[in-house]
């Protein structure tokens, strides 16, 4: 059984525009360009500049060269925050992508044909709902659910667990608990994109595989997954970046605690900036975080382009 994935033929080359015509488009870029300059480039430049200073946020900053970066290298809190980021990548990118892909396939070619499109749409909406809910609302609801005397623990008690975990209040449980909430939040995002991607797959591929006697999971592995590769890349890229700069769920659920059990780089930058008034150091943390995000994004896009042969 060999199935060659049909690669969409690249569109006929469009003749390049004349110089004058190209210039005509320039003005349409101005609003976006101005926004990018004012909201991203200038503040980022200022952030980098501040990271070379010692500053409490008021008065004049003192230039200290690379001191903040040297401190950062030896700062255990910073590195533990990055270690937590890796767990958050698992919770926000890896697990939701894998689970989302699987669930999308189940909805797309099991639920929809058997129970109707409306049921599939309803379920898709259900999975997507956490993405629509404001994070603060979802966070507060989850902190009630995960309260030591909250819903989860009273159910566990009914099942005979005499000492259920203190989900957000115990250093050993807090990180897994926050990860669980993030998986719940993120699943819908990938799922919706994957379902759209699956609608694009040529049905002939599935038919051919079925005629060859491929079972559902074999088709999932050999047709669905390879065909939705571009979507998988996009979802992995955007969610990995989101995981690296995650802030709001941590802020609402644990504020980085207990201790520093759920501290993440962006929250650490925030506490330095606004809490301990070490604005220079907070900026250094933010700068390093931004650079890591940019490097990762470039690698991802490179790998994706190569695999698509562009």
């Amino acid at each position: 059984m060999t199935i060659t994935a049909a690669r969409p033929q690249s569109a006929r080359r469009v003749p390049s525009l004349t110089r004058a015509a190209r210039q005509g488009y320039v003005r349409y870029l101005i609003p976006g360009g101005a926004g990018f300059l004012a909201l991203i480039l200038v503040p980022f430049g200022m952030n980098v500049a501040i990271s070379f200073t010692s500053w409490s946020g008021i008065g004049s900053p003192h230039f200290v060269g690379l001191k903040n970066y040297r401190r950062l290298v030896h700062d255990d809190l910073f590195w533990s925050a990055f270690e937590h980021s890796i767990w958050f990548i698992i919770a926000m990118a890896v697990v939701p992508t894998a689970l989302g892909l699987f669930l999308a396939a189940v909805l797309f070619d099991y639920v929809a044909p058997r129970f109707g499109r409306r049921t599939a749409s309803f379920l898709r909406g259900g999975f997507y709902l956490p993405q629509v809910l404001p994070i603060t609302v979802a966070g507060i609801a989850w902190s009630w659910i995960l309260n030591p005397y909250g819903a989860v623990n009273s159910v566990l008690k009914d099942f005979g667990v005499s000492d259920p975990p203190n989900w957000l209040g115990d250093s050993n449980w807090a990180l897994p608990s926050v990860m669980l909430v993030l998986v719940w939040m993120q699943i819908g995002y990938g799922l919706v994109i994957f379902m759209a991607g699956m609608a694009r797959i040529d049905p002939q591929l599935h038919e051919a595989a079925e005629l060859d006697g491929a079972a559902w999971f074999t088709r999932f592995r050999n047709v669905t997954v390879p065909q939705t590769r571009p979507e998988i890349f996009v979802v992995l890229l955007t969610t990995t970046i989101a995981a690296l700069k995650v802030f709001a769920p941590v802020f609402v659920l644990t504020r980085g605690g207990p201790g520093d059990a759920t501290n993440v780089p962006s929250f650490y930058s925030y506490t330095n900036f606004f809490g301990s008034l070490q604005v220079g150091y907070g900026s250094a943390v933010a700068t390093v975080l931004t650079l890591i995000v940019i490097v990762l994004a470039v690698i991802f896009v490179r790998v994706q382009s190569r695999s698509e042969g562009v």
Binding site: N166, G169, D170, S171, N172, R255, G256, G257, P258, G259, D260, A261, T271, G275, S276, L277
Partner: peptide, 21 residues
């Protein structure tokens, strides 16, 4: 006395009462 000391005390106290410190 110290900027951000509230968060340091609160989060470590949480760990202390939780029995992890």
């Amino acid at each position: 006395p110290v900027p951000n000391f509230y968060n340091v005390i609160q989060q470590n106290l949480q760990t202390l009462v939780g029995g992890n410190q």
